[in-house]
Simulated assay, not measured.
Amino acid sequence: MELKTLDYRVDDGIARITLNRPAELNTMNGDFWPEMVRVFDEIAHDMAVRCVIIASTGKHFTAGLDLKWAGQNALASRGSADLGRQREAFRRHVKELQESFNVIDNCRVPVIAVCQGGCIGGGVDLVTACDMRIATADAYFTIQEINVAIVADVGTLQRIPFLLPQGLVRELAYTGRKFPAAEAARHGFVNRVEDSHEAALAAADAIAREICAKSPLAITGIKQVLNYGRDHSVADGLDYVAVWNAAMLQGDDMTSAVQAQMARQSATFQNLKA
Rank of each mutant, 00 (worst) to 15 (best):
V190K: 01
V190R: 05
V190S: 04
N191K: 10
N191T: 15
N191M: 09
N191A: 15
N191Y: 14
R192C: 15
R192F: 06
R192P: 00
V193C: 05
V193M: 07
V193I: 11
E194C: 14
E194A: 14
E194R: 05
E194I: 01
S196Y: 00
H197R: 13
E198P: 09
E198Q: 15
E198G: 14
E198F: 10
A199C: 10
A199Y: 02
A199K: 15
A200V: 05
A200Y: 07
A200D: 12
L201R: 12
A202I: 14
A202F: 14
A204C: 10
A204Y: 04
A204G: 15
A204N: 01
D205S: 12
D205A: 08
D205H: 07
A206I: 02
I207A: 10
I207P: 13
I207Y: 01
I207Q: 13
A208T: 08
A208H: 00
A208D: 11
R209F: 04
R209Y: 01
E210R: 13
I211N: 01
I211S: 02
C212L: 03
C212G: 00
C212A: 14
A213S: 08
A213F: 13
A213M: 07
S215D: 09
S215E: 02
P216W: 01
L217D: 07
A218D: 07
A218Y: 03
A218I: 03
A218G: 08
I219C: 02
G221D: 04
I222A: 09
K223R: 00
K223I: 02
Q224C: 02
Q224F: 01
V225C: 10
V225M: 09
L226I: 15
L226F: 15
L226M: 15
N227I: 04
G229R: 05
R230Q: 09
R230H: 02
R230F: 03
R230G: 04
D231A: 12
H232Y: 03
H232I: 04
H232D: 07
S233T: 11
S233R: 00
V234L: 14
A235D: 15
G237A: 11
G237N: 06
L238N: 14
L238T: 06
L238K: 12
